[in-house]
């Protein structure tokens, strides 16, 4: 059966992703836009993610060892170069919410020995916890370092009774030795897609949001379906002249501020960031 499958679908098996219009006929391709000018660095998204996705609180000692488990982290930079140019950060801090970029050509995917991480039909970079053997190759190969490994057996001690009652039953509690990462709140997407499918329709724009996008007080995070050309996210991508299947964008318009981080590594991320703005006259 597998051989006939191989022969029948040879063309599609040899197709290299991403390619132009690959999601043209697909119902969903999840993507995000994060407006860095709106992001105020308030950490609401971070805590929301802890609440939604059963992230373990690791405590001071382990945080200090670099074993924190935040799927989305707010990075705060003081400058773009290698030194702060002025004595004071005159233009404020530079906040960057960094989460899994759900790359179309994710460097983490091909290196996993067991295929615990792979690309889902709706364009997500998945992580199947129970398949993971913990080689940590994906994390080694992730240029954004947004994969988090369970160095300890958190189910044992991160949720002393009754804290465990808060755990989201739709999300697995990861035990020691597996890699975990942002899933774009896959449990919400799945529930929404199931509902929509039963109703015989596609998800409407904004019907399902990730926890971070839902919480964000400034609405800096826009989440949606890129395959739907009319969704807000798709229009924003187009408006910002970012094309999913390109690793160098042609920016013909002035003042377009969308970009993808470390695009030159050919990762084709699904998150577009909008440049931070500053009134330099002030």
């Amino acid at each position: 059966m597998s051989l006939s499958n191989l022969i029948q679908n040879w063309d599609s098996f040899r197709k290299r992703r991403p390619y132009e219009d690959q999601y043209k006929d697909a119902p969903y391709k999840w993507a995000m836009v994060i407006d860095l000018d709106s992001c105020i660095g308030c950490n609401a998204c971070t805590v929301a993610c802890y609440a939604e996705n059963n992230l373990a609180v690791v405590g001071k000692e382990r945080f200090g060892k670099g074993q924190a488990m935040h799927w989305i982290r707010i990075e705060r930079y003081w400058g773009e170069g290698e030194a702060l140019e002025t004595e004071f950060p005159e233009r404020g801090a530079q906040y960057l919410p960094m989460l899994c970029q759900q790359c179309e050509a994710a460097p983490c995917e091909p290196v996993c020995p067991v295929g615990a991480t792979h690309h889902s039909p709706d364009g997500l970079n998945t992580q199947v916890y129970n398949r993971c053997v913990g080689s940590r190759y994906c994390s080694a190969n992730c240029p954004y370092k947004v994969r988090y490994f369970n160095w300890w057996n958190y189910p044992e001690r991160a949720w002393p009774n009754p804290l465990e009652l808060q755990l989201n039953p739709d999300v697995t509690v990861r035990s020691k030795g597996v890699m975990e990462k942002c899933t774009f709140c896959m449990q919400r997407l799945r529930a929404g897609q199931d509902k929509a499918k039963t109703a015989g329709r596609l998800l409407a724009d904004g019907e399902v949001l990730t926890a971070c996008a839902q919480a964000c007080p400034t609405s800096a995070i826009t989440f949606g379906n890129l395959a739907d050309k009319n969704s807000k996210v798709a229009r924003m991508w187009k408006n910002q002249q970012v094309d999913l299947a390109k690793n160098a964008q042609d920016k013909s318009e002035e003042g377009v501020r969308g970009y993808r981080i470390l695009e030159d590594l050919n990762t084709y991320p699904s998150i577009v960031y909008l440049e931070r703005l500053r009134n330099f006259a002030a």
Partner: peptide
């Protein structure tokens, strides 16, 4: 706490943005 030349948080002058 610097970006070391990577384009992580890019800043644009407000008057250039549309």
């Amino acid at each position: 706490n610097l970006q070391n030349g990577q384009k992580l948080v890019a800043t644009l002058s407000a008057d250039q943005a549309k």
